[in-house]
């Protein structure tokens, strides 16, 4: 690459890393002969910053609502400065956001549940877009290959569900094991707390246990076990072989 071209990219690189009046002025001083109107050049700074904001806002709508507009704006600005777009797929800019939020909780006075909520929202997308494909058909009861398990100190699942019903109080503190997976036919993310039946059915899938075996070992009625397997297969948490 010719030095003049490298100089061009270097100067654009410093401007686009932190678009603003000062960096724009520095860009122009790097090219004294350049006559393009600065209002036109700054369009690119706005665009580049805007793409990160748009992606993050689409991925974390609940967190955005929870922290309020002013805090949110500052968070996105500072996150953008970490240059998170290392992947060609634009949604991947959100991958590092939960860790960024976890680091920012005390310094910015974010609600204590913010990191768990951010992780939940990222997982919601990651599961939705997961490249793990469900084998079709399965030969025996199989855990959904897109399943993600989150261990968190807030009851995020209940809170997200309640929000859907118009309740807006904060998530309650308390240990939660959240399960998120992509429904094999609808291809949308399902989530729920890991209830005893859900854990039992997952254990059956992972260890290849049959309903009679589980009934014998636990004393649970076999019909209840079969019921749970049928319900959670319909929800896609586990994949059942064709009847």
């Amino acid at each position: 690459m010719k030095p003049s071209l490298k100089h061009f990219f270097d100067s654009m690189g410093s401007y686009l890393a932190r678009p603003g009046d000062e960096s724009l002025q520095r860009l122009y001083s790097a090219h004294p002969e350049w006559r393009a109107p600065s209002t036109r050049v700054s369009i690119y700074g706005d665009f580049v910053r805007g793409h990160i904001r748009t992606a993050v806002e689409k991925l974390f709508p609940l967190l955005r609502g929870a922290v309020g507009a002013e805090t949110w704006n500052a968070l996105v600005e500072d996150y953008t400065l970490t240059r998170p777009a290392r992947h060609h797929e634009v949604n991947r800019v959100g991958e590092g956001f939960p860790a960024f939020i976890a680091d920012a909780v005390s310094s910015r006075g974010l609600p204590p549940y913010a990191p768990a909520l951010a992780r939940f929202e990222w997982s919601d997308f990651a599961v939705f877009a997961s490249q793990a494909a469900a084998p079709e058909p399965v030969e025996r009861l199989t855990p959904n290959p897109t399943l993600v398990v989150l261990e968190q100190p807030f009851r995020i699942c209940a809170w997200v569900r309640a929000r859907g019903q118009g309740v807006t109080r904060e998530p309650e503190a308390g240990d939660e094991l959240a399960l998120l997976w992509r429904h094999p036919e609808l291809l949308v993310t399902y989530y729920q707390e890991a209830t005893p039946p859900a854990l039992l059915v997952l254990k059956m899938a992972v260890e290849g246990l049959s309903a009679p075996e589980v009934a014998a070992a636990t004393g649970m009625p076999e019909a209840d076990i079969l019921d749970a397997v049928a319900r959670l297969s319909r929800d896609g948490l586990v994949l059942a072989p064709p009847a």
Binding site: K2, L5, F9, G13, L16, A17, Y44, A85, R86
Partner: peptide, 25 residues
């Protein structure tokens, strides 16, 4: 155009200078 600098995707189609150096590149 270019769309990446220093390993960072800018997620935009950024214009290049109209020069022979760019053609060569």
């Amino acid at each position: 155009c270019y769309s990446r600098l220093g390993g960072v995707y800018l997620h935009d189609l950024l214009p290049l200078p109209f020069t022979e150096a760019v053609v060569e590149h």
